[in-house]
Amino acid sequence: MIYWIEGEYIPEALKEINHFMRDWRTDDVKNIDARTIDIMTAAHNLTGSSEPYMLISGYRSPKTNAMLRARSSGVAKKSRHLLGEAADLHMNSRSVNQLAKAASACRAGGVGRYTSSSFVHMDCGPVRSWGS
């Protein structure tokens, strides 16, 4: 999807992205930070793949985040997902390490490797990394 042209974000495209990345459990929609979308796009371009991402998690409502925290110690209480600043992504044609390497090469936010669950977390927060 084209969401940016000649230095300008396309509002209709961002609205569609916000809806796609909504909390599917509650159907709540939040504006996704464009920096996160930019990181996702740059990392995808670096993979050299035409396969789209599979979105595991985008925006999370407080209710969903609390439910996930109760099930797993790996869910942050103040997750960037709550702010619309994060995405958990998977690609069949690329390994977790390949995706994480591409995201890290952007030097633009947080990158988490969740190898056992087969996804990579990308966010527009401080540059940092975790997982193996």
Rank of each mutant, 00 (worst) to 15 (best):
I32G: 00
S129P: 01
L99M: 15
S93M: 06
E6G: 05
I17C: 03
A103I: 01
S129R: 10
T47P: 09
Y59E: 08
Y9S: 14
C124S: 14
R128M: 11
A34I: 14
I56M: 10
L14W: 03
D33K: 06
Y53L: 02
E6P: 00
A102K: 03
R128I: 09
Y9G: 07
H81T: 05
S117K: 03
V127Y: 09
R94N: 10
I39S: 01
S117Q: 09
S95Y: 05
V29K: 03
H19A: 14
P62S: 03
K15T: 11
I32V: 08
N45S: 13
F119K: 02
D38R: 14
L89E: 00
M54I: 15
Y9F: 15
E6T: 02
D38E: 15
A86S: 11
I2N: 10
T36W: 06
V127S: 06
R22T: 09
A103C: 07
T64D: 05
A87I: 04
R69K: 14
I37D: 00
N45K: 15
V120G: 08
I56C: 06
D23E: 03
A86P: 03
R128D: 11
A105H: 10
D28T: 05
R69G: 10
R107D: 14
A34T: 15
A87F: 09
T115A: 07
M40G: 04
Y9C: 10
I5L: 15
A86Q: 03
S49W: 04
R94D: 04
R69D: 08
V111I: 14
G48H: 05
V29W: 01
I10P: 07
L14T: 06
S73N: 10
Y3R: 04
R35N: 07
E51V: 03
K78W: 13
P11D: 12
V96F: 01
M21H: 01
A66D: 13
N92C: 07
I32K: 01
S116N: 11
A86N: 04
G84V: 08
V96G: 02
S117C: 02
S118C: 12
M122D: 08
S73M: 07
N31C: 08
K101C: 11
H19W: 15
V120M: 10
A76I: 10
H19Q: 14
S117A: 11
V96N: 01
N97Q: 11
D23S: 04
T41M: 04
E51C: 02
V75H: 06
M54R: 15
E85H: 10
E6V: 01
A43Y: 04
G84T: 05
P126F: 09
A34N: 11
I37K: 00
